[in-house]
Amino acid sequence: MCAEPRLHEPVTVRTFTQLFSSTPRGARLARWLVAHRMDVWGFPYDGDAGEIVTLVVAELAANAVRHGRVPGRDFRLRLVLRDGVVRVEVADGRTERLPVLRKSRGEEGGYGLMLVSAVAERWGVEPRVGCAYKLVWAEVRVA
């Protein structure tokens, strides 16, 4: 008896979504919960994959709090693990202010997106026309 050929391999997709207050405490909690979630998904706290994803979340969450805060609105964090890539998405309420990657070292601050750009395969911004939020995302290969 012959085995039937597999036409499609099963795909495992893991997700994590959480709202956080647009405060420094909310950003710290997001970083901590992502480190924990990565560990649960099999990427240990002290491993490269977990540390890189946690760094990306820390920078994007800090930007959401510092530059994307709108009083009374939280920021949303979403992780999606699929095919060895973690997509980090951070949505905040400041739609008119889009992040910009600074190339010069002369300005104070602004290094967060430089770090994200250095460790992520790609990153971007999705302004949501007609919506009350924008989405900043980054993709990190973990396997």
Rank of each mutant, 00 (worst) to 15 (best):
L19P: 01
L29Q: 11
Y45F: 14
P24C: 02
S22C: 15
G26Q: 01
A30R: 00
G42K: 13
L33K: 07
Y45L: 11
D46W: 11
D39C: 07
P24R: 01
A62R: 09
A30K: 00
V65R: 03
T15K: 15
G50N: 11
N63L: 15
A61R: 06
F16E: 10
T17W: 06
R14Y: 12
V57F: 03
F20H: 01
T23I: 07
L60Y: 06
V56H: 06
F16K: 13
L33P: 02
W32Y: 13
A64Y: 05
A27V: 00
A49T: 08
S21H: 08
A35P: 01
P44L: 09
S21Y: 01
P24A: 00
R14I: 12
L55G: 08
T54V: 06
H67R: 15
F43E: 00
R28M: 03
V57D: 05
E59S: 11
G42N: 09
E51A: 14
R37M: 05
W41V: 05
G26W: 00
V65K: 08
G42T: 05
A58E: 02
M38E: 03
M38Q: 04
R31T: 10
R14K: 14
T54C: 04
V53K: 06
L19F: 11
D46L: 13
A30F: 05
L19D: 12
A27G: 09
G50F: 00
L19R: 10
V56K: 03
